[in-house]
Structures are given as C-alpha cells and as structure tokens.
Computed example of a mutant assay.
Amino acid sequence: MSDLLDRLRERGWRLTAQRRVVAEVLNGDHVHYTADEVHAHASARLPEIARATVYNTLSELVAIGEVIEVSTDGRAKRYDPNVRHSHQHLVCSRCGTIRDVHPQGDPLSALPEDERYGFTISDATVTYRGICPNCAS
C-alpha cells in the first residue's frame, strides 16, 4: 500500500485540507487515477475543492517525486503514488485499467551490451499490455 500521507508528513510538506484530501485519494494499492478522477473523488470528500487545486497539487507531487505520471497509448495521464517500490505496469488495451506488477529479474540487465550503443542505462520502463478479466467477459 502507498504510504503517501506519511511520506508527505515526513517531508514537512504543508498539508492544507485540499492537499490532504488529494493525498488521501491517491493513497492505496494499484491507484492510477486521472486528474479528473482525483478531482471527482476529492470533491466527494471536500466539495469546495477546485479542479485547478487538484491539478496544481498533482503537479507539485510529481515535481517533488512523491507521485509519478503514467501515460499509456495516448490516454489521459494517470498518477501513481507507488514510487518507493520498483514495479512495472500491466495495462488493459480496451478500458485502460492499470495494475502494478513486480516481474522477476532486472529489466536493466535484459538489454544486451550490443544493443546499448554506448549508453549508460539508468532506468527501464516495461509496460505489459493485455485484456483485463472485465473486458474479456
């Protein structure tokens, strides 16, 4: 489970009511909401929260490295609070559902030396695609 609120408190990040509710919405396993979904969930808890506040808060969380943006197949960006645990993503090609997955092995070592073209590899992102059980039925 994401520990986003705890991490933000440890950083001393000012948790206004609006920031807190955005962080609460993002807290959890397999959370990959769009900004509009974050706003919808946040406004259910704090009706006066503005869409701009949600967007600004998400931008700040990305900038400080506590949330990552996930973009898949030209769909809306999604926000993932699971930044402390190395993982990849499994994406449904039909509905866009995203799940965190933890494949065995190191994706950095999977690229052969002759395919690195002199690059010093620092990161690898693997996205698995398929059809989720809901879309398959």
Rank of each mutant, 00 (worst) to 15 (best):
E48R: 01
E48L: 10
I49H: 12
I49Y: 13
I49W: 06
I49L: 09
A50I: 04
A50C: 08
R51H: 15
R51M: 06
R51E: 07
A52G: 13
T53H: 11
T53P: 08
V54D: 02
V54H: 05
Y55P: 07
Y55R: 15
N56K: 12
T57D: 10
S59T: 14
S59W: 14
S59M: 10
S59E: 15
E60V: 15
E60M: 13
E60W: 15
E60C: 13
L61I: 11
I64M: 12
I64P: 11
I64T: 13
G65H: 10
E66G: 07
V67W: 09
V67E: 03
I68W: 14
I68A: 14
I68V: 15
E69A: 11
E69M: 04
E69I: 11
E69F: 03
S71I: 15
T72V: 15
T72W: 12
T72M: 12
D73Y: 08
D73H: 15
G74L: 05
G74P: 07
G74M: 08
R75G: 06
A76K: 15
A76F: 02
A76S: 15
K77H: 13
R78K: 01
D80W: 02
P81A: 01
P81G: 05
N82P: 10
V83N: 12
R84P: 10
H85F: 08
S86V: 08
S86T: 04
S86N: 05
S86C: 07
H87W: 01
Q88K: 05
Q88D: 04
H89F: 04
H89K: 08
L90R: 06
L90A: 05
V91K: 05
V91F: 10
C92E: 00
C92N: 00
S93W: 14
R94E: 13
C95D: 03
C95H: 02
G96L: 04
I98C: 08
R99V: 08
D100T: 10
D100R: 03
D100A: 10
V101N: 03
H102A: 02
H102G: 11
Q104W: 08
Q104A: 13
D106V: 00
D106L: 00
D106K: 01
L108T: 03
L108G: 01
L108H: 00
L108A: 03
S109A: 09
L111R: 04
E113A: 03
E113H: 00
D114F: 03
D114W: 12
E115Y: 12
R116Q: 06
R116S: 01
Y117F: 03
Y117S: 12
Y117L: 12
G118K: 02
G118C: 02
F119V: 11
I121M: 10
I121Q: 09
S122I: 07
A124I: 04
A124R: 02
A124G: 01
A124N: 03
V126W: 00
V126K: 00
V126E: 03
T127V: 15
T127D: 07
Y128F: 06
R129W: 06
R129C: 12
I131V: 14
P133H: 00
P133E: 09
P133Y: 00
N134H: 14
C135E: 09
S137F: 13
S137D: 14
